[in-house]
Design a protein around this nucleic acid. Sequence first.
DNA 1: CTCTTGACTGAGG
DNA 2: GCCTCAGCCAAGA
Length: 110
Amino acid sequence: MKPETLNFFERVYEVARQIPYGRVTSYGAIALYLGAERGARMVGYAMNNAHGKDVPAHRVVNRKGLLTGKHHFEGTNLMQQLLESEGVEVVENQIQNFESVFWNPSDALF
DNA sequence: CTCTTGACTGAGG
DNA sequence: GCCTCAGCCAAGA
């Protein structure tokens, strides 16, 4: 039993761990890096399973820079709080200067 | 096996 | 620029 899907999840976690401090990325960017651009939802799905792991899911948002997954964190503003703690400006679940703090895994795997 | 849901994205109006 | 629809893949009931 060694389906690539299993690796897919593991890869998602590893990419998330590679996200530098004060930076964020999108599900699509991770999916694209994994070669599964159509699997952006799967990235989020993997993130759901990433709970309890060393995966900084709070640094992963959708392409709009919106904290779509904040509801999956404890409390109501934990995700935003974590991001702001890293210097990321967040307002109303939306990251400010998103493209400025955006981190592309494909650009970092260099 | 079929249907529904989901931390998404792109295209069209 | 915002809203809506459709496509995509995987897991759970």
